[in-house]
Structures are given as structure tokens and as C-alpha cells.
């Protein structure tokens, strides 16, 4: 069974790469989400295969450990019929002293069509995109951007709330080191939502206020009346007294439990990009509460959004090649 995209190649989304939300316009975001909605339907069918990427090669290059994102991209590519290869970069050439650009040039010579890249340094994916001939998708670079995460979060919110504008959205936890927070802040801001950033000031630098967000270091105050509570993962290496005094104090002040969640709107949804630290930033029972938590939906939307993003980029890539061929 073949999936048919709803529209002819749209003239609006014309980007070569998906490097960040910063470069997307609101209508492009909507276009990706609309297409992703159709892929949600496809993914729920018993026969999930489409061939829109048939004949194209997708390489997943992960310079940083990832299970979920890599699996999500891999599945997205396979459902659309691409030939998918995974490369665990931290295990290979990096150790042999090869530079990022050399690695990119080597892969480029293998003629991939879609390159999915995660790298521990901000801007590394932009750099790589300048050097290759294919479409590059940023799967997370340092603390810069993680665009597909923000898109999947947006799709989850839109489906749960029926809209993606004029919502009060709280993003809680380690904002400073989070690319998820940055991409979400930009995306949700572009779609005209009110954003609150909640966390200890060591993890929520004041410069974020310049993006139009409201900053709260009191979580109870910050959660009052919000429609969406987005929790972030607290990295283990930040728990040792450098940024917060201890795990238990963090949980006490910034962990999402039933008491704090009660301050949000009664129908507020709870999100988390995963993997969760139960008992550190989120109470286990809230994470599992099917009436509040949309964490499993986020994972499902992740595959659909990545299918949509790769579909759109592949259309542009094919159009560009047709043009070049004359």
C-alpha cells in the first residue's frame, strides 16, 4: 500500500537543509506539521510502507550517543523506502583523528541524499552542511538546536490542544544546556505562544528573557494557569553541586509532582523529550498518567515529523537535481 502525500510539491518549503527552527517561517512549520499529520495516519495502519524516498540513501551520523532519536530517524527513513545506514561516529574515525570535514567529505563521496547528523558542538552541523551536496538534517548540535524535537513537540501540542497559538507553555529545568529548549523557544515563539522558562538561575540564564520569554525561578509561581508543561532532562553531570546543590533539593524545588502540576490548568498536558529521570525532574506517576502525560505521543509524533521533514527535503533535492539536469 502506497502513501500519497496530500499536496503537490509545495512551493513554500524550499529549504535545502533542516538545520534549525531559526530559519523556518511559521507557514513552513505549519506545512511540515500538516504533512506529518498524514504520516501519523500512515504509521497507524497495519501496512506502513511508502516509497517517497525510494532510491534515496539516508545516512545517520551520530557523533554523540543516541538511542531514541537515531531509532526514530531510522524508522522514518525505512517507512518511506530510503536505504538507511547508521554510523556511530564516536566509535570510528574521530578516534583516529579525522576532522569533521574530512569525515563529511568521505561520506559525501558515497553520494548520500539525506544526512542526519548529531554532534556535541554547537554549529557543527551547519559547518558540515556547507561541505556536502545532499540535504542535511540537524538531529541536535551541542546546545544550539534540535529542530525535529521542537517540531514533534509542536505536533503533539497541536493534536492535544487543537491549536498551536495563544497557549501558555512552561519549559522547565536545564534550559541553559538544552538545545531542545532553544528550538522549542524559537518555534513556540514564532507561533505566537506565551512562554515561561522555569528553573534555578544557574540553569536559566537571564539572556533568555531577551527572546520574549518570562523567567521564573519559583516553579509554583511559573506553573500557574499554563496549558502545557514541558519538562527537560537534567543531565547527570550537572547534578554534582556545580549547578544545583543536590538531586534531592532539585526534585523538591523543580521536580514535577502532583502538587505542583495542580497549579497548571486542569487540562494541562505534560511533556518530556526523554529519556526521563524519574524522581529527579518528574514524578513517575505523572509521567505514566494517561490523562496528563503525552510523553508516548511525543515518541509517536517524532517518527511522523521526521518522515515529513525528510519527504519535504527530498522533494526539494529532486527538484534541484531536475533543474541541474536541465
Amino acid at each position: 500500500m502506497s502513501h500519497v502525500s496530500p499536496a503537490a510539491p509545495g512551493p513554500s518549503f524550499a529549504a535545502r537543509h533542516l538545520l534549525g527552527i531559526e530559519h523556518l517561517k511559521p507557514h513552513e512549520i505549519t506545512e511540515i506539521l500538516d504533512l506529518a499529520d498524514t504520516y501519523v495516519d500512515l504509521n497507524r495502519r497495519p501496512e506502513k510502507h511508502s516509497d517517497v524516498l525510494a532510491g534515496l540513501t539516508q545516512i545517520n551520523m551520530f557523533f554523540e550517543n543516541s538511542t531514541r532519536t537515531q531509532a526514530s530517524f531510522e524508522l522514518a527513513g525505512k517507512r518511506l523506502g530510503a536505504d538507511v545506514m547508521n554510523m556511530a561516529m564516536q566509535a570510528s574515525s574521530i578516534k583516529k583523528g579525522e576532522t569533521l570535514i574530512d569525515t563529511a567529505m568521505t561520506l559525501n563521496a558515497m553520494h548520500p541524499d539525506l544526512l542526519v547528523v548529531r554532534h556535541p558542538h554547537s554549529g557543527a552541523v551547519d559547518l558540515l552542511a556547507q561541505k556536502v551536496n545532499c540535504a542535511v538534517l540537524n538531529a541536535g548540535d551541542g546546545r544550539h538546536e534540535h529542530p525535529t524535537q521542537a517540531l514533534l513537540d509542536a505536533l503533539t501540542i497541536r493534536r492535544a490542544k487543537g491549536r498551536l497559538h495563544r497557549l501558555n507553555i512552561a519549559i522547565c529545568g536545564d534550559i541553559a544546556h538544552s538545545r531542545v529548549a532553544r528550538s522549542n523557544l524559537i518555534l513556540l515563539g514564532k507561533m505566537e505562544n506565551r512562554i515561561r522558562l522555569i528553573g534555578p538561575p544557574t540553569l536559566v540564564p537571564g539572556h533568555f528573557a531577551e527572546f520574549g520569554a518570562e523567567i521564573y525561578d519559583d516553579m509554583r509561581e511559573g506553573l500557574k494557569g499554563v496549558d502545557v508543561v514541558m519538562m527537560l532532562r537534567l543531565q547527570k553531570e550537572r547534578m554534582d553541586g556545580g549547578f544545583i546543590p543536590s538531586e534531592r533539593e532539585y526534585y523538591h524545588r523543580y521536580g514535577l509532582d502532583a502538587e505542583k502540576l495542580a497549579l497548571a490548568k486542569p487540562d494541562a498536558i505534560v511533556m518530556h523529550p526523554g529519556p526521563m529521570n524519574r524522581g529527579v525532574e518528574i514524578d513517575g506517576t505523572i509521567a505514566d498518567d494517561i490523562n496528563r502525560s503525552v510523553i508516548q505521543e511525543q515518541v509517536e509524533m517524532g517518527v511522523a515529523v521526521r518522515m515529513a521533514a525528510m519527504d519535504l527535503l527530498a522533494r526539494n533535492l529532486r527538484a534541484e537535481r531536475m533543474e541541474q539536469a536541465g
Binding site: 531559526e22 554547537s122 554549529g123 548540535d141 551541542g142 546546545r143 544550539h144 538546536e145 538545545r179 532553544r182 540564564p205 539572556h207 533568555f208 531577551e210 527572546f211
Partner: peptide, 11 residues
Amino acid sequence: SSSKFATLRGL
């Protein structure tokens, strides 16, 4: 230098 720009770029 810490600023809005550095925050945006994640540096």
C-alpha cells in the same frame, strides 16, 4: 561573550 546572540547560537 555572554549575550542574547551567544545564547541563540548555543555557544
